[in-house]
Design a protein around this nucleic acid. Structure first.
Lengths: 157, 157
DNA sequence: AGGATAGAGGACTAATTCTGTCCTGTATAT
DNA sequence: ATATACAGGACAGAATTAGTCCTCTATCCT
């Protein structure tokens, strides 16, 4: 299974929480870690770790001092899932030997003529992750049965 | 970094070796583990482990006994990278809570309204991995400078 | 038939990576 | 001045992965 680290998963959850919060409807709202932990259900130390990474990655802005906190660096539609993952986990790549890491001492290197071809897959992957924005992730999840105008139970009765 | 396990990486390398081998030009050739290890540069015990998984996943066929070995189950163009990864690592999904795992005891579940939205990303990811075939991975890697008909050094002189 | 080859299946150890937590230092608003 | 809140790094425990090995079964060749 291709795994996303839990940290990235949490990042999406926390950022989604921020994007959804009414206080952020005008944009620019800041939330301290404790509040984010409370609203999202993610443990506070973990939230703190996360936000530091996200701030460094330019996904959120930070404000120190009293009544400080973190806020989205730009609109939720302008933040892609790829941005978030890159901030938390570093550059997105499936294998180690993509992008000029000639010093990894890969024993198969001499015989491995596959290397360059991974680029295609990485490109496809990054494209897929870039095509989904935080705003889309923040949309309420609607079970398939209720999509496309299928009437609710109440309306059936 | 979204990481592919090393095993999957090796799988691509080994399968690529098989697809490229002249003996397989007519298709249906079988290679014992030892030979595959030798040709690919991947340690033999690892190759053995790999091939078992790939056989179980239907990517390769196995033939026991003397002069037996493994062969591609179908043409290299009909084997996608997604097939290979699925065989080695199990179902492709970025997060644990996709696909009805209601018993994982996810503490955030109640507050996590993101779950269903991961499907979009998973779909995009699987699409990306399905769109690249083993045959494409087996193509010799040509540095960008020499693509698109740029003459080789020899031809320049 | 008998021996040699080669895969099937599973168990196990070591290493790596990830997770989650804590501590100290610095900036800011009241 | 002081309390709040982020910045940065260090660290121990847990979980996963990697890699190896052993035994059993099937098939081919002599």
């Amino acid at each position: 299974m291709i795994r996303l680290s839990k940290l990235s998963d949490y990042a999406i959850v926390v950022l989604t929480t921020m994007a959804r919060d009414p206080a952020n409807h005008c944009g620019g709202a800041t939330f301290p870690c404790g509040l984010l932990a409370q609203k999202s259900g993610v443990p506070e130390p973990t939230v703190a770790k996360l936000m530091k990474l996200l701030a460094k990655g330019g996904v959120v802005t930070s404000q120190r001092g009293m009544s400080g906190g973190y806020g989205l660096a730009r609109g939720a539609s302008d933040i892609s899932v790829a941005d978030i993952i890159a901030a938390v986990e570093g550059p997105i790549s499936l294998t180690e030997c993509v992008g000029g890491h000639d010093d990894t001492g890969c024993q198969v290197e001499r015989l491995c003529a596959v290397r360059g071809n991974w680029d295609r897959i990485n490109t496809a992957l990054v494209g897929a992750l870039s095509s989904v924005s935080l705003a889309e992730m923040a949309e309420p999840f609607i079970p398939a049965a209720y999509r496309d105008g299928v009437p609710r139970i109440k309306e059936i009765a």
